[in-house]
Design a protein around this nucleic acid. Sequence first.
DNA 1: AATTTAGGTTAGTGGCTATTAACCGTGGTG
DNA 2: CACCACGGTTAATAGCCACTAACCTAAATT
Lengths: 203, 203
Amino acid sequence: MEVLPVEDRLTGRSIAKASRRAALLDAAAQLFAERGYNGVSIEDLGSAAGVSGPAVYRHFSGKPAVLSALLTGVSEDLLDGSLAVVAASTDPEAALKDLIRFQVDFALSKANVIRVQDRDLSSLQREDEQLVRSLQRRYLEVWVDTLAELSPDAERVRLRRKAHAVFGLINSTPHTTHGGRAVPDLAGLRGLLEDMAWAAVRI
Amino acid sequence: MEVLPVEDRLTGRSIAKASRRAALLDAAAQLFAERGYNGVSIEDLGSAAGVSGPAVYRHFSGKPAVLSALLTGVSEDLLDGSLAVVAASTDPEAALKDLIRFQVDFALSKANVIRVQDRDLSSLQREDEQLVRSLQRRYLEVWVDTLAELSPDAERVRLRRKAHAVFGLINSTPHTTHGGRAVPDLAGLRGLLEDMAWAAVRI
DNA sequence: AATTTAGGTTAGTGGCTATTAACCGTGGTG
DNA sequence: CACCACGGTTAATAGCCACTAACCTAAATT
């Protein structure tokens, strides 16, 4: 008979393991953002997390699994976050403003992962790619639903394009913030992006 | 004594060579956009241009040279085009509108190259990367100069960020137009992007 | 305290791929 | 019409890299 691992015990080892896994994902976000998925070796990944080479296989089944964990994670965070934002807002206009703020926060605080998401999505295995695309689609629909409440007459196709364009606007700084250095006037940038996004979305 | 190849004769072969080179660059734009520079092999590249493998070396010194030709080409086209646009306009407001139209045209007609440019810039060799970055910087400055004429009091840092964000907005569709399929309502998309860009830039 | 399990390590190993070698037909040139 | 430069071909070559094997130590479990 097998021992069912129904409940994971919080032993010292499991904590260490979790934090190592997190370190690997952090390293992956940074390295993939800089050099692209195919430009990073498992050895690079391991040593950036303070461990060398094949130890990565104690945490992930392979290189694709690392990318998959990274991208499904960010997609879920975006979707869940946006649902929470919309649920907390009363009127659609406030909801849209909060969605913008949320996306700006996300883009500025997780620039690396944002970058990887639209750079290396195609490197995922078919199944994972579909999952991530589905999560992204649902996130997009949260925006489109909110936009539709504000412009009931607009076609959804148009609203979808609008949302895409706003994402491009907001996500632009990760592309330009080279290497992940700190941004001087972060608050100013945040405000500028919010204002521009608001102006663009209200046309 | 060497024969100086001062003037290239327009022989049948040289024409064939030029068109093969163009085919290779087209293939590179498409494949790099889809799979990323490191996800495409020389063999892939060649066969997509109707030639197999090492024949590529008759046209480029190596794989990096292909990427370099692609990216310096697009950067130069953008810079030259923007200079022409500004030179043709009289007042700054018209210039800005034309710059937007120009960038939208470019993003919609050369989506692949746009994608490669901000995806695989870091795969260039140091020297070429500096060249491309320099061209991009000069292109950005064309925008910033125009913006500065319209808002003489604004800091250039802020205007630079603004321009970046507008690029992100306009270049968003290449990211979303998966696989390079034709866009249904191209004119509508063009108009939408222009309107949104104009609204965003005028905050 | 004995034993098992898990996360690490350092050596392979095999496949892919950029680049080079060696060779070949032909358009352009004299 | 003889020659040759050139764009192509297929067959090495060499290096990188994902992944596996074999082994080792120490935390958990008993």
